[in-house]
Design a protein around this nucleic acid. Sequence first.
DNA 1: AAGAATACTGTCGCAACCGACAGTACCCAC
DNA 2: GTGGGTACTGTCGGTTGCGACAGTATTCTT
Lengths: 238, 238
Amino acid sequence: MSRRQVFYDLLSELEQERRKDTDKLFDKLQENYGLRHQSYVNYSLAAGRQNALDLHHTFPEEFVKLYKEKDLHLTDPIAQSGLSGIKPVHWQKYRNEPSAKFLFSLASQFGITDRGLTIPLLCRGSQAAMYSINADVPQKDWFKYRTEYIGELQILATYLHSARQELAQEDETPELTARESEVLTWTAAGKSYWEISMILGISERTVRFFMTNTRNKMGVVTNSQAVAQGVWRGIIPL
Amino acid sequence: MSRRQVFYDLLSELEQERRKDTDKLFDKLQENYGLRHQSYVNYSLAAGRQNALDLHHTFPEEFVKLYKEKDLHLTDPIAQSGLSGIKPVHWQKYRNEPSAKFLFSLASQFGITDRGLTIPLLCRGSQAAMYSINADVPQKDWFKYRTEYIGELQILATYLHSARQELAQEDETPELTARESEVLTWTAAGKSYWEISMILGISERTVRFFMTNTRNKMGVVTNSQAVAQGVWRGIIPL
DNA sequence: AAGAATACTGTCGCAACCGACAGTACCCAC
DNA sequence: GTGGGTACTGTCGGTTGCGACAGTATTCTT
């Protein structure tokens, strides 16, 4: 069966919502798209809480372990572009970037080449996700490969993402109380504890109390970090 | 020139960021993908800028006027799915939906068929965007059409969207240097000045210097406020 | 040659943050 | 009626943020 035919079949299945089994879709992609490695990652929470991420990949375990240990997701320009941008990211664009130097050299030790592609995926509110592939093609065929496959890969990744989102339905967004989100919102607006206490007509100590609860619930350590999460999740109306 | 060749050329151009002219891309799509109509719409959901609606389309003006007048976007199940979902929406899925009954009958008066597709687009912050097409094909070819084109349409719509986002941001987004956004990002990740100085290998004073510049450029008074703006504007990769 | 923009560093000092120790009062569910 | 969640308040003391006073070095433009 040709790859094009595989794509047609997969698409028909996905459109009819008959496929909820993301593992099989992953395998189909692996088999039919000349992939060396692929990964789907969904950061439910921002930096600092790695336990709440949905990661599915075929990269060498040892590599992923090192990647996590060294917090490379914070410096990796590919991950950054993938999580903040809209367009697909060509790994080679960052080949000579100083911030990616270590990453590429580490990757090559595990047989990962720079013929890779990272597709940002659509998330509502609380998350950021991306799908990456490392193709098993020589450099000379790389342009043709990605031009040929990128459309199909993006649409399939979209469906993969959608399915995993549906599966992981349980909402991890911590519920802030009315007061907590109120105080968080004023903090995002640049007010100090004292100012907020005046605005809300409560004591400064109480404002602190709410912010402490907010930080704890969000699993963050500073107010700035809480604000980042709050804006990201749409808790804070700007 | 075959459509496939057109796609290849467009993709090469878009990947090299040579194309900022979204109108031309729109025209190319219109010409080469058998489209009757197409539309790109970006709703900015921010409280501050409620009237910011980026709409670009080839639908009959009279139809769009009626659509707006009757606030159909509030009942239109296709728009709803497009703005809240992840997967592409097939218009026909809602053909027999009561809430879409009026819409479809209105549309048909303007020569708009139900062979349409709406692709949700990725937005950061409180925005939502989608790209829709109405194909100029008979019902019998519709399945083949969308299976054949959906991948290409999604990827091209992604680039169209990205370009329009960039244009929209150039207006008001300041201007942070590499170091400034780097420091802002680490702040949003909950790091203290001292920690950031260790991470970046510069003095703590210099970290403060960059954050002070960032605050001044953004016109805000606290780091938390700067982080809120940064996340909102997509400066900060989470 | 002068000016502007960027990257960087130093010290003083107060305001603000934030953890850890306390509490009180209300409401709702089991 | 006891346990748990929310709303609130107080004090102590160390840490961090941040303004205001300083600078130097490099690069790019006019």
